[in-house]
Amino acid sequence: MTTEPADDRPPAAGPSANLIAAGVVIALGAVAVTGAAGLGSGPGTWPMVIGVALVILGLILAVQSRRAEPPERFTRSSLLVVAAVASMIAYVAVIATIGFEIPTLLLAFVWLRFLGRESWRTSIAVSAGIVVVFYALFVGALDVTIPHLF
């Protein structure tokens, strides 16, 4: 599947991280069970079955957590992911009010220049190019109703 070189791999977290993952699964199952109980039989039966299955699977994962391959640790470079997600959230927040052109330009630029460490020249050219192509494609050719300024 993935093919990154060996030394490129973020360090593994301790086995406790597996326990956390298992805990999340159990918690999700618990939420499903609670929600399903609130719905009652009929609409709630199927989610209840899934919820119980999730709790059981979570418990198995917890039991195995010591032996299983541990998840990857979050490192400083994980901050890049946080920044990337933040940029996308900002994108969604403003697109409905100011149209997709400016947010698209900015998002592309931020990703290219700051996340991708591309040169200024490349960043500007590519992000402007993206906006033009997207506009031509989605608004011009396909007449998609995405909010747009022009």
Binding site: T97, I98, G99, V132, Y135, A136, V139, G140, T145, P147, H148, L149, F150
Partner: peptide, 9 residues
Amino acid sequence: VLAGCGGNL
């Protein structure tokens, strides 16, 4: 360049 197409906001 693309102005004149009319926005939909």
